[in-house]
Every structure is written in C-alpha cells, then in structure tokens.
Nucleic acid binder design. Structure first.
Lengths: 201, 201
DNA sequence: ACCTGAACACCGTTCAAGT
DNA sequence: ACCTGAACACCGTTCAAGT
C-alpha cells in the first residue's frame, strides 16, 4: 500500500477504461482498502491523476527526426508528434483534463525549434512558423480525437453532406465530402501546403 | 412547467455557469419543483442538453462572405467561422459534449464549398482543400478553447520555453516563444500560408 | 396528465476514532 | 504511521404512489 502501488494501479485503470470512469471508490475496491485510505498516501483525485500523468510522461520515447532538407525534417517532426499523440490517447486525455497539454508534447516543440534554427529562421518569424506548425498538428489531433471518442448518438459530417442540394456547389465536391475523410491524407496535404509557404527557398 | 420553460431555464443556467455545473437537481430547485418532475417533460440530462443545443443553433446568425478574390472570400469565411465559434463558447462546449460539433458549424462548410466551386476547384481536390481549411480553423479554436478554460493549476507553454537552454536553438527564437502568443496573428499567418498553397493562381 | 417521495446506485472529501 | 467508519454534500435515474 505504498504511494507507488496506488499510482501504478490507478494508471492501469486509467489505461484500461479512461479517466472519467476511474473513481476513488473503485480504485479503493481494486486495492482492497477503504476509499479514505488513499488520501493518506496521495492527495485528492487530481493529485493522483497528476502523478499518473508524470509517470506516463517519463515513458514517452524521444521524437526522432528524419530527412535531409529542412522541409522534410520539420514535416517528420510534425508527423512523429501526431503519431505519438495518437499512440498515447490516455496521456493526452489526462493532459487535457489536468491542463498540462503543453508539457505532453514539449520535446516536439524543442525539436521544431532546432530545425527552424538550422533552416535559418530566427526571432518572431521563426516563432510564427513554429506556432503555425504546432497549431496545425495540435488542432488536427484534437479534432481527430473529438471525432473518435464521440458519443454513440454523434452525427458524422459525411451524413450532413449527403443531404446537401445546393446549385452553387459542384456535385463532385458534394460527392467527395459525402465520403469519409482520410485523416492521414488530409494532414499530409495541409502540412505540405503550410510548409511550402513558411520555409525560405 | 412546460417543456419550453424547462429548456429555457436550462439554457440560462448553461450560459451562466457552463455545462458541467448544470445538474437535474439544481435545475429542479431553480424551477421550484422535484428533480423527478423534469423527466416527465423532457427525457434525461443529455436529451435536455440536446434541446438546449438545438435552440441555440437556430439563434446562430448566417456566415457573411466578404472580399473579391477567391482567397479573400475563403479567408473571410474561415475568419467568420472562428469568430462565431469564439462568440458562442457555450454552444461549442455543448456540441462537443453531445458529439454534434459538425452541425454547429455546417453553414460554414457549405459557404466554403460554394467559394471553392466558384474558384474552379472540384471533386476530391476541392474536398482536400475544404477539409484543410476546416481542420486548420477547427483545430485552432479547439486549441484556443482548451488553453482558455484550463484548470487553475495549468502551465503555459511560455513558461516552459523560458527555462530552455539549448545551444541548437537560436536565442531570439527562445525569447520569442517565451512571450505569450497572439492567437489572432497566428491564425492569420497559418491561414494565409495554407491558402497561398491551396488555391490555383 | 402531471407531480412527489422514497429509493437505488453512485460520486469526492473530511475527520474523529482506532491500532 | 497508517487505516477504518461514519458522515456530509453531492450526482442521475426509476418507479410506485398520489391528485
């Protein structure tokens, strides 16, 4: 019944069934202990979740940079960050819940900073570029996750498009929007478009 | 004690203090009635919130399109959508909670479809472009809102940057990242960069 | 038709009491 | 030092009973 054992158990529960469903009482039952015993070792619920978050952070592998040109290397970082976020949905939900989203991806921020410096960008312009890439990546994964763990009653954008009959919109466009999006392709498209405008050539 | 009166009261409460804090019991107290009376008129909590969502949707003003060139007009739609989302944070939180985010911004989707058609784009390429703009806009506002209503304990990305000491990152870039971001400027920057690559010229 | 009251199965957290 | 039990102030929802 150490603090370590409690945090480990909480982490297993969070990873198995999500942040929301983990309660102090269920955790206590899992530990075979009274709910109030937990408060002696860790603080309240949010302090416990913070400890879980910190533990998961240390297990995060570093971001690997690939490619030769600056555009390739920056794109590879953005892809790696997105992949890491997608591979650790629980960590991301925790980060969001605790308001520590920046910390969960900060090693990627630094990697982007290094590549932009190497590409010859500097100062406010480099910061604009860095933030643009971060916003694009972060926005994408946030959107994707909010689409993924939607409630059962959720509507899909495709279904709304299928009912569209607007003479000012080309029918092939309506047809294309009525098919499910390929998020990977959409991300590649937007990322390339952004980087093409951002980087000096 | 009509269904209408209940939904109106729930809406006032949601707008005043957020989705999470509205409970059936508090709403009942506000109505001067037993909690269980609500169930006769509307269904459970989520059905009630759906009714509030639908009522708020009908009050949404249409998206206004400005500018002469396709790039200007598309940019104006993206800006208007972002402004509308920012002006209706309660509606957006409701949409997210209920999994109806697409519906909350669909008039903007259609406006983009019309402008891309007018710009001569069509089929899958137009759909790629449309989705890229939507993802950029949606991602931005999601990120901004998750930064805005962060818990009191939240860290800011600027504070993390202030502690950075990496010889491979130019000091002026570190300094720029240590200052708070201007979200409006970042959005304009990313939007322009994206549109410059997307639109045929 | 419409509302109440009791009840069920949950929450997080505090705090005095035990060992 | 570490744990329990009772208690407080909450949840959403069901359902028999009242008028």
């Amino acid at each position: 019944m150490s603090r370590e054992h409690i945090v480990d158990t909480a982490r297993r529960m969070v990873e198995a069934s999500g942040v929301e469903t983990v309660s102090m009482r269920k955790l206590a039952a899992e530990l075979g202990v009274a709910p109030t015993a937990i408060y002696w070792h860790v603080g309240g619920r949010d302090e416990l979740l913070s400890a879980v978050f910190e533990q998961m952070l240390t297990d995060l592998p570093p971001i690997r940079v690939r490619g030769r040109t600056p555009a390739e290397r920056i794109a590879s970082i953005a892809r790696a960050m997105r992949a890491q976020v997608q591979a650790t949905p629980t960590l991301q939900r925790l980060a969001l819940h605790l308001g520590r989203a920046p910390q969960a991806s900060f090693s990627g921020h630094l990697a982007l900073g290094r590549e932009l410096t190497a590409a010859g960008l500097d100062g406010p312009q480099a910061a604009d570029a860095l933030r643009a890439v971060l916003y694009l990546m972060g926005g994408f994964v946030l959107l994707e996750s909010s689409l993924r763990d939607r409630p059962p009653s959720a509507q899909r954008s495709e279904d709304l498009w299928r009912a569209v009959d607007d003479p000012q919109i080309a029918p092939p466009l309506v047809a294309a929007m009525s098919r499910p999006a390929d998020p990977d392709a959409a991300f590649e498209y937007a990322l390339r478009a952004l980087l093409a405008s951002i980087l000096p050539r």
